[in-house]
Amino acid sequence: MPNKPRIIKPSWVPVHKREAFQNLNKDKNRKVYNSRKWRAFSKNYKERNPLCIKCKEKGIIKASAVTDHIQRVNVGGDIYDESNLQPLCKSCHNSKSGKEAHGYQEKPRK
């Protein structure tokens, strides 16, 4: 009778220490983004705002995938203030976050 293959888990990250969004290591607000409260808040916000706002400005209809903070939280933006939030698709969010990480400041919307 054949033996079931043994599952080998990576030793460099113990199973009990894994958590969602663990790559946000420099973000002090990681616990907030992993909290049940934020996930429910973000899900509700995306249900009410289903389209990416940046794509919509370009005339493209694309579903939002991320609840993004207009002003970064670690710079002083409020986490649960809806006027500081915008729905973005993954590509727009990655573009915005990459620019912010390298010091680029976007002009505020009017």
Rank of each mutant, 00 (worst) to 15 (best):
K56L: 14
K43L: 14
V32C: 03
K56A: 15
G59K: 04
H102M: 03
S42A: 15
N3Q: 15
H16R: 12
C89K: 11
R72M: 02
D27R: 14
N94C: 05
K90R: 15
P108W: 02
N23W: 09
I61Y: 05
W38R: 06
G77W: 03
G98K: 04
C52W: 03
A65T: 06
V13E: 11
E82T: 08
H16L: 13
D68C: 12
E47Q: 13
R48K: 15
L88R: 12
S11H: 10
D27S: 12
C52T: 08
I70F: 10
G98C: 00
P87N: 05
K56F: 14
S64D: 02
H102T: 04
K58H: 11
K31A: 13
G59A: 09
K37I: 10
V13T: 02
S42V: 10
N34M: 07
R48N: 09
G77K: 06
A63L: 11
E57P: 02
K37Q: 06
C92N: 04
G59D: 01
N34D: 02
F21Q: 12
N94R: 13
H69C: 03
N44D: 05
F21N: 08
F41Y: 05
G76D: 04
N25V: 15
K46G: 04
F21R: 13
N34Y: 06
R39E: 07
R30Q: 12
E100V: 02
S42C: 14
H69P: 07
K99A: 05
Q71E: 14
P50I: 06
G103R: 08
H102S: 00
Q86P: 03
I7V: 09
V32D: 08
T67D: 04
I79S: 08
A20L: 01
R48H: 12
G103M: 07
K62F: 15
K9D: 09
P5S: 11
K46V: 12
R39M: 08
D27A: 12
N3I: 14
I60F: 14
I53Q: 05
K54D: 13
K58A: 09
D78M: 05
K56V: 08
E82S: 13
V13C: 04
Y80L: 02
N3F: 15
K56W: 15
Q71L: 13
R48Y: 08
R109W: 09
K4L: 15
F41T: 02
N25Q: 05
K28C: 08
A65Y: 11
R39I: 01
K28T: 10
K31G: 05
Y45G: 09
Q22T: 10
K9G: 07
D78I: 10
R30H: 01
S83H: 07
F41N: 03
D81A: 13
F41V: 06
Q71P: 05
G77L: 11
I8L: 10
E82L: 06
R39T: 09
E106Y: 03
C55Y: 01
Q105S: 13
A63T: 04
E19K: 07
K26Q: 08
N84V: 01
H16S: 04
G103S: 00
N44L: 06
R109A: 05
N84C: 13
S97R: 10
K99T: 02
A20H: 11
A63W: 01
S91D: 07
P14V: 04
D27C: 13
S64N: 09
H16V: 11
I70M: 10
S11C: 00
Y104S: 10
N49D: 00
N74P: 01
H93F: 06
P2M: 10
A101L: 00
R30Y: 09
C52E: 09
C89D: 03
C92S: 01
W38T: 04
K107A: 06
